[in-house]
Design a protein around this nucleic acid. Sequence first.
DNA 1: GCCGTTTTCGGCCCGACTGTTTTCAGTCG
Length: 568
Amino acid sequence: MTNAQIAEALEELAVLYQLDGADQYRVLAYTNSARTIKNEGRSVEEMARNGTITELPGVGKTLEEKILALVETGEIPAAAKLKEKIPVGLLEISRIPGLGPKTVRRLHDELDVNGPEDLRAAAEAKKVRELKGLGPKVEEKILTGLDRLDAEPEGPARLRLDEIRPTAEELVEALRAEPSCEKAEIAGSVRRWTETCKDIDLIATSTDPKALAAGIAGHELVAEHGKPSDKGVKLTTHSGIGVDVRIVAPEAFGNLLQHFSGSGAHNAELRERAVAKGLHVSENGIKDDKTGETEMFATEQEVYERLGYQYIVPELRENRGELDAAAEDELPELIERSQIKGDLHCHTTLSDGVASLEEMAAAAEALGYEYLAITDHSESHGFGNHVEPDRLWQRIEEINEFNNEDHGIRLLSGSEVNIHPNGTVDYDDDLLEALDWVIASIHTAFSDEAEKNTSRMITAIENPLVDCIGHPTGRLINQRDPYPLDIERVVAAAAANDTLIEINSNPRRRDLNEVHARLAAEAGVGIVINTDAHRPETLDFIDYGIATARRAWLTADQVKNTGPWWKG
DNA sequence: GCCGTTTTCGGCCCGACTGTTTTCAGTCG
């Protein structure tokens, strides 16, 4: 059972307890542990089985028992029991915005609502407004919420970062261009470079807040907006992205930026720890119990310093140990884009790229790279994009010729070879040996069984002619789940065989993900950050790979392509 | 349900907003 599945079961149990009227802190304990487990790189199932799971923060004796039952029987007894008592329809309607557990419970108890159909009937018959504390506005919210539930049964989609980031950048630039704007920054998950984002948060200071809010509300990207005030404005773009613009006094800019950059988990932990020191943190400032004063800070650096921490960059703010490290002055010096010396995965027109070898080389040279590996697909790739051995031998010659000419970049002859279901790869050994660089990837015939995929990949890792594994889990964000794989065994094999593992920077992939990349690096596996570019412009995807690496706590010395080309 | 530089019991992060109320509970980020 994957960590994600365990986390999902705990989240469901939290909602069930909530609807059952359990103490909020008990509910919180389940939600928190679900988040911890989702962020854990090691197999939580394994930790449950060998009795080490209580090492995880927030997981105690009771959760240990429940998780053990879950991995052994497929369900948590307490959850099964609650499901008998609580109609599943209530879980569904609790997803309607504005309807929390308390309200859902009252609708059930007082109006006999058991699911979306009952709720619609009650709202249409204007019964909801008869309940104390509820009124016509709530009824209206319920009906629009039910419509949305019908339209999007899976809930509102989170957008991939690359689908939302350009809009955030355009809007923050527009804010900065407003005459009354003093400072404007992107906050929220876009600033933390998460894989997906729900909306855009923008933070600003202004000499005339209301004018600034009104100004941005008139931007051409904006389809609808709320009422601009001196605190900001809420926008919706034509593409349906929600944007929250908040304006604050310059002296509290650091507090607000810190607050709205999140993550929620990081901030909750930060505040909890501050309370122990008699300090209360909010977007408005830091209140000191001793003096009763609220201190405001213009920069985030000062906020963290006041609380006793090193500055923590946004990418690390996920409550994955960054507060402990920052308290001890032990945060890693994270890798930066400027340290990348070359890209080791790209395609040309030889397979499915759209640019020539020369065009790709020129683009890489323009980025200041020392080397670029040309890694077109291999013999068995198909789709008309396969490369016959003879053609690849010829390509090696072309690359040699290129390197003999006067260019500011060195090309490496490579290939992205397919890993066959039995773990062997394309091309004979003499051809693989003639290449500078071999990436092996799985493109076909994923199995539903982790064991098959894992041993297939490990066979490739053990092949001495394979330098690196490409996009190791095959996932496409929001589109295709990773194929089942025992990452810990893959990582152990890679470490034992000195085989490198790629962070594929394509924002649709970001594979390895940040959790697995951290696990791999900690196990001593060398990482390379590549773009898998199929056109010159997408060599710029390296930013997303760098972001994943930073979110995985990686330093330059853990990433092989921060150094000069190392194979002679 | 978890956990301990006040604690093995009694706490547990903060404020804005909304809709409903005349002072607040619930929800959300």
